[in-house]
Nucleic acid binder design. Structure first.
Lengths: 337, 337
DNA sequence: CTGAAAGCGCTTACAG
DNA sequence: CTGAAAGCGCTTACAG
């Protein structure tokens, strides 16, 4: 900048004014032109670090991924979420950094991103029901958006309407005539999303006058592998279900394989409906009926929210809930006569 | 820091020395203890921006994803690659930022990340054969690692051994007795990886004395949808193949569906082998035989390489090639008698 | 309409 | 063993 000022024969102040297009700076057109010209010739680019130091901002948003290494590496939605966030923030000059924080990390470090001024705000992809560090961060006035859990008082959050999605899925099964409907969760019930999906399941049953049977509910744990045991257990029941609502396509993969091993195939012997709408679902045999999770929209909305927060703008709603959509394919059918 | 110095009754210099553990600074133990103590009490955290300004470094690595929005959102490996890079760089105090750059972007902007000092080095996930911006960056002395294409002279790069992987796949088919073997590429042949896999295919054929037949080679284009046409074309051939090597599991998904629509099922009527080893492959019916692509390792190695570059350390090898591994599952079988 | 100067929060020769 | 001071590259009152 020094160089530009010298070459253009003006002060650094003037250069700063024209380059930043400061209003009311009243720079003569000729001067302005000259500075712009020289800056171009010298291929001038401002030093972000210097700018950050004086403005006190970093123009960075951190996406904190609260997952184990394995969970993150096999997260089919990470790309969509990242893409969504970037599309929201980059047009406004913000960049995205990724930070991994183990879910069990007691001494996790993402608060340091703020303390050491590496980022202006955090999007926390946190499936955990509660998290003391988030609480602290929020109380300190840090811009924080929770993506995926909405149980924390006063903290901005975004999620899909899990209960409604589950309700729609189970209602679909009921309409096909099923009465004996099992449920395998996407994750342990210590996760908010699992609870909400269970609630949707129960609500649909209740509405149809079908009594809730605890024995029909089993826990999955994110992965396809975790789908085997629960499915075996369900199929081993005296009065086994004619349909199963599984809270995750991924878990459904394993569950379907388990059923197959027992010689039970969907949808003839058993109707199966998943959740998430993984891209691969339509290529399975039979194509998997599921509930669409709008991962990209989730990211974009999270981006919009954190953007509003870091810019101290008004946040229309503190908790937003995105709609799901039932995707009918081949893994569900009317209950066999 | 000012505050810490004041509270400890020392100068900022001293605080800086003890906090950064500067060797040969010869701080009295008592002073050191006092400073540490006060810093803890005041919950002091250094301002990264100020530090960056004086050191001239940002401690940031940018992952430049050269893909369309759609491609990125449906990239099953992005999480694994990111995780790999982070595991390599975070222990050394570096952070990762993500930057999207459209593959067709003439006036793409990732060079600005360096010009404006937002990052110290770039990992470019670039499938394109050549890229003028990378050339320029490299010539300017910027630390750059190409992930996925190795055609640029003098630029560090990492990739999987595509040719060997394809060779292994086709050789497996030949050993099963197939002689009429089709190929559907993962992407257009303007992409380096596609060419390399085609070379592996040709090499295996040549070695077995099977003449290369241009009619048996078709282009895929990343997505499952792009697998239909090529498969139809192959099946419509007079002398149709008994096996097909497909350069991508994703493309294989569509191709398999296309075959199924024609009443042709793997592996009885047609052996099919993919590439990538998507997690879902083992849950398909039949489970997909494929070539394992070590996405996490790719990321970690890219991380190690860029780390060496930004730290001006010696780079053992400028171009590294990671081995693949043939995964035998159910979609390939001996040629029908 | 433009410039001199202070300041953002650090590091690091240099002096004592 | 410790401190005063310059400097990193910017922005922004303030003065003229």
């Amino acid at each position: 900048m020094e160089d530009v000022a010298k070459a253009a024969g003006v002060s650094r102040t003037t250069v700063s004014f024209v380059l930043n297009n400061i209003p009311n700076s009243n720079i003569a057109d000729a001067t302005r032109e000259r500075v712009l010209q020289v800056a171009r010739e010298l291929d001038y680019a401002p030093n972000t670090q210097a700018l950050n130091l004086v403005t006190g901002r970093t123009m960075m948003i951190a996406l904190v991924v609260r997952k184990t290494t394995h969970q993150m590496a096999s997260d089919a939605f990470l790309g969509a979420v990242i893409e969504g966030i970037m599309q929201a923030i980059e047009p406004h000059g913000y960049h995205l950094m990724i930070h991994a924080a183990q879910p069990d990390g007691v001494n996790s470090t993402y608060r340091d991103l703020i303390r050491t001024r590496k980022a202006d705000g955090l999007v926390i992809s946190s499936p955990m029901v509660s998290d003391a560090e988030v609480r602290l961060l929020h109380d300190e006035g840090t811009p924080v958006v929770l993506q995926g859990a909405s149980t924390m008082e006063g903290v901005a959050s975004i999620d899909v309407d899990n209960e409604q999605g589950a309700y729609d899925a189970v209602r679909h099964l009921i309409e096909l005539g099923h009465r004996r409907i099992g449920h395998i969760s996407n994750a342990p019930f210590s996760y908010a999303a699992s609870c909400e999906r269970l609630n949707g399941y129960r609500k649909a049953l209740a509405e149809a006058g079908i009594p809730f049977d605890r024995a029909l509910v089993r826990e999955g744990n994110f992965t396809a592998e975790s789908g085997y045991e629960p499915m075996y257990a369900l199929l081993d029941l005296e009065d086994r279900p004619t349909a199963v609502f599984i809270g995750s396509d991924e878990v459904a993969l394993g569950a379907l394989d388990a059923a197959r091993q027992r010689g039970i195939t969907a949808p003839d012997d058993l109707s199966v409906i998943g959740f998430d709408n993984l891209p691969v679902g339509r290529y399975l045999q039979p194509p998997l009926t599921t509930v669409h999770l709008p991962a990209f929209d989730l990211g974009r909305e999270a981006g919009n929210m954190i953007l509003a927060l870091v810019r101290s703008e008004h946040l229309p709603r503190l908790k937003v809930s995105l709609p799901t959509r039932l995707i009918l394919r081949g893994s569900t059918a009317p209950v066999p006569a």
